[in-house]
Design a binder for these strands. Sequence first.
DNA 1: TGATGTGAAGCGGTTCACAGCC
DNA 2: GGCTGTGAACCGCTTCACATCA
Lengths: 213, 213
Amino acid sequence: MKFPKIPEAATNRLSLYLRCLNKLSQSGVQTISSEELAKRFNFNSALFRKDLAYFGEFGTRGIGYKVEDLKNHITNILGLNKTYRVCIIGAGHLGSALASYKGFKKSRFSIVALFDVDRGKIKQKIGSCYVYDFADFQKIVAIKKIDIAIIAVPASEAQKVLNEIAKSGIKAVLNFAPTLLKPNKNIKLKTVDLSTHLENLAFFLAQSKNGNK
Amino acid sequence: MKFPKIPEAATNRLSLYLRCLNKLSQSGVQTISSEELAKRFNFNSALFRKDLAYFGEFGTRGIGYKVEDLKNHITNILGLNKTYRVCIIGAGHLGSALASYKGFKKSRFSIVALFDVDRGKIKQKIGSCYVYDFADFQKIVAIKKIDIAIIAVPASEAQKVLNEIAKSGIKAVLNFAPTLLKPNKNIKLKTVDLSTHLENLAFFLAQSKNGNK
DNA sequence: TGATGTGAAGCGGTTCACAGCC
DNA sequence: GGCTGTGAACCGCTTCACATCA
């Protein structure tokens, strides 16, 4: 299989398509056209076809796409035919909430460890998950064969944590700390910045108040 | 003040600039050039100047930008010179975590109400915040003058909640439910989709495993 | 001189429009 | 005939390069 450079926007859309196809499959829909599917997202149908074209040809001209087949193809493309072992660093409010988050239960991501430095939290159980001492991070990552790390520590600690993650060989990180992290070319880092999202909403409100549309 | 269409990417960067300027200000830095500031983000300095150019001219040729002034300008541009009153719908793990999230404490966003439909949660206090019956949503929004709503309910309930929000006159919404919501032209809706983020990481891992870079 | 502010060029992702195939 | 797959046009954001001004 050959992958030219694929826009991240495209793979994000694949996630959405997949979610939709799962629903369609459950409703017993057999076939769908790009037009019909794209309409559900207010996307252009050509965009949908181009997104798929990065990976192959999955449709039938004159007919459309077989829901079940396409679902399986996208599942494979996204690498969701295996389960990923995830750890969360930081057992504060956010880390604990993520550990208990029901949305993960039915997905291919299983939270297998929490880490913290707070003696009061270490050895506790949160959700179905044990809190380990962050001092043992390298050891536990190896034992538990962790694939993905989630950073849920205060901004001031995040870079330190990322350095430790890099040492462990983990290659994919989701960061919730509102801070700029030094990019590491071996690691795929995604940051979810709640403050920025909220500030964006504030900007929108401020702007519309000034009589702009 | 006149606002041409401003890329959302630009206003997101303004948030980052502001965070950095706050730090610089605290460190006592008086002046900074676009080059120097952009370097901290691995951005092009022209991008920084263009981002500002949407809103005016804030620098001095040959010198750069006064940290304190620029900080104040961006604060005003983003509408962060006032405090926003935020509510969270859904007092589950995520909603509760957000209500207790310390990062908001020092920002211009104050969580003033939680909502749920679960009798076991209603009237409880989470963080410093009371859980109201979602049946009373319209009433409480009016009384508490809520500006921003955060949706932290299961996907199946999210559209219903958004409809209720629309009725209340709230204009800005941050959604954590992993589902497609019908766009409402009166409402600025931002969705944070954790599943999609994780699936994106899965795709990255699957791809690199197949020997691609 | 030195850094800003900005028109023009560059680039990457989206849409168009149609050839190709069932 | 109908829908996919795709080259070409399009569009908007980023980068370049330089005129402008303290």
